[in-house]
């Protein structure tokens, strides 16, 4: 499992790889948190969310948009997630820690998750996604 930032002029483009679709989602969550809050990660909090989408792409967008919302309103920085995806329905157990300005001010705000440039594919080696975060 991995993610990397690939060049994009205006925004942040991430390429992630993982053996399963669920672990791909969790990898992109980590990328999003790294962009926003830098490296520091704690797992003192737990939160569960459930979502449904029309397809894999909209499910991923809804999941990440929900993370942006919860992270901002509840002031939580997420470190990891255990995710189950079945028929475009997602259940995630999220782990994280309370936002602390001294620890988590190393990043930049993500304004939204874009459909433009969104790509999710799979082959014998697993899943791959490319996604653009508007910053």
């Amino acid at each position: 499992m991995s993610f990397e930032e690939i060049p994009h002029t205006a925004d942040i483009k991430i390429r992630a790889r993982a053996p399963t679709l669920a672990s791909l989602f969790s990898e992109i969550l980590k990328a999003l948190m790294q962009v926003m809050y830098g490296e520091s990660r704690g797992k003192t909090l737990k939160k569960e969310i459930s979502l449904t989408g029309e397809d894999t792409e909209s499910l991923l967008l809804d999941f990440l948009s929900e993370i942006l919302y919860i992270s901002e309103v509840e002031a939580i920085v997420f470190a990891d997630a255990r995710i189950i995806i079945k028929n475009n329905a997602l259940h995630a157990v999220l782990q994280g820690e309370p936002f602390d300005i001294r620890k988590h001010s190393g990043g930049t705000e993500v304004k939204g998750i874009s459909y433009s440039g969104l790509l999710i594919s799979s082959d014998a080696n697993g899943y791959m996604a490319e996604i653009v975060f508007d910053v």
Partner: peptide, 9 residues
């Protein structure tokens, strides 16, 4: 003009 999302910037 540059590469954005939806419309170009």
């Amino acid at each position: 003009i540059h590469w954005g999302y939806g419309f170009p910037i």
